[in-house]
Nucleic acid binder design. Structure first.
Lengths: 207, 207
DNA sequence: TTACAATTGACCACACCGGTCAAAAGGAAT
DNA sequence: ATTCCTTTTGACCGGTGTGGTCAATTGTAA
């Protein structure tokens, strides 16, 4: 299907993939412009449509490509036998941060793909979602050692509060980075704050 | 400036305001279409531009209109002498929910205005933000009775965890509503869950 | 009947869109 | 130098939708 594309030198492949991903992430499917993609990738319009039949195929290719990359990266680096929830979720956070370093727009792309989905691609996208979402998301909560939590505690709620806090911390870090001069995330600062919150939540919820 | 507009019967004013706000909330400034606005409002294209010089003025008018409405509503219904943080934030949540009932798209509009801001309106918008944001946002944290919190606790962090949890609860409720058949928020269910979370957080952070 | 304000919607020039295709450029083998 | 094939180009196409205009119509009150 995309064998022609994969015969390109990798550097060019990546230029195209990242340019397209960035454009879709910023503007969503409908508003994303193939003209902008080829300009950013430094190739001609014709070439893009030589490798990808049309805009829709390009988008779905990117979706598959990054979803596989994402799951591979996450489950390669996560130790699912770790039963302490805080350590488990810390692993996830670190993998996410690493990915965010290499592909700054990746999560926005995934979010776009998950939420909006213009009618053009919605149907194809929904097929793919069913195979993926809950399967992998819930695996992160599997095998957690609940005996560490205080007795009588609603553990589901506790896990949610912890997850939400960490998510919001990440969002805050991204927002701060956006306002900073070079749009860089202060990883050390974030991690330090992160550990402080974890400590607080542990005294809250652990025995 | 907009005296012509305010001489219209209120029902028509509201139709125009809500149609425009909805369109901007859904698509952001650039993609929002004046054609869609007039169609939704049930007026002619010419009339819109009779009352509002151009798209930019219309957007800024809406921003001012709703920001004033929002602050008025919130501070009218909030008892700032209430020094218990949970009760204080509960008041805010209730006001927000009420507003969401009357203006379902309002918060998305505010978010759009706060985040994206096409270059066309960014400059004017930034001026307005400075006057507003921190002034009103931080007032919600003013005069809180910190003696109720456990000794040695990092209160700033605790307040954040509480705020974030409640925000995420709200987001979750909205997302659920989106998936439900009539897009209705299950207020009773949300409020029940809300109280359970509050109870948990109180045992965490209060003496 | 008149005068004025409110309202219409066909119309404009323009920007940009996804996609095509004849032609040019590059490279390897002869 | 010539051939042949692949890779790459970018001008070009028909189409869509835009923000904004304005001559003409309608409503209204004197």
């Amino acid at each position: 299907m995309f064998s022609k594309f994969f015969n390109l030198d990798i550097e060019k492949q990546n230029r195209i993939i990242n340019a397209a991903m960035k454009e879709f992430a910023q503007k969503g499917y409908d508003r994303a412009s193939t003209n902008e993609i080829v300009k950013e990738a430094g190739i001609s319009k014709g070439l893009l449509f030589h490798y990808f039949q049309n805009k829709k195929q390009l988008f779905l290719f990117l979706y598959d490509y990054f979803m596989e990359l994402l799951t591979n990266e996450i489950f390669k680096k996560i130790d699912l036998s770790e039963s302490d929830f805080f350590l488990r979720i810390q692993q996830v956070s670190i993998v996410k941060m690493d990915l965010l370093k290499d592909y700054p727009e990746l999560f926005k792309f995934v979010e776009i793909a998950y939420m909006e989905s213009s009618s053009d691609v919605k149907e194809e996208l929904d097929k793919r979602k069913k195979d993926f979402t809950n399967l992998n998301v819930n695996r992160i909560y599997e095998g957690i050692d609940v005996t560490k939590f205080k007795d009588g505690l609603d553990i589901t709620k506790a896990l949610k509060i912890i997850t939400w806090t960490i998510e919001k911390l990440g969002e805050e870090a991204l927002y701060k980075a956006k306002l900073s001069p070079h749009h860089e995330i202060d990883y050390d600062g974030v991690f330090k704050e992160y550990k402080e919150y974890i400590k607080m939540l542990k005294t809250c919820f652990y025995k």
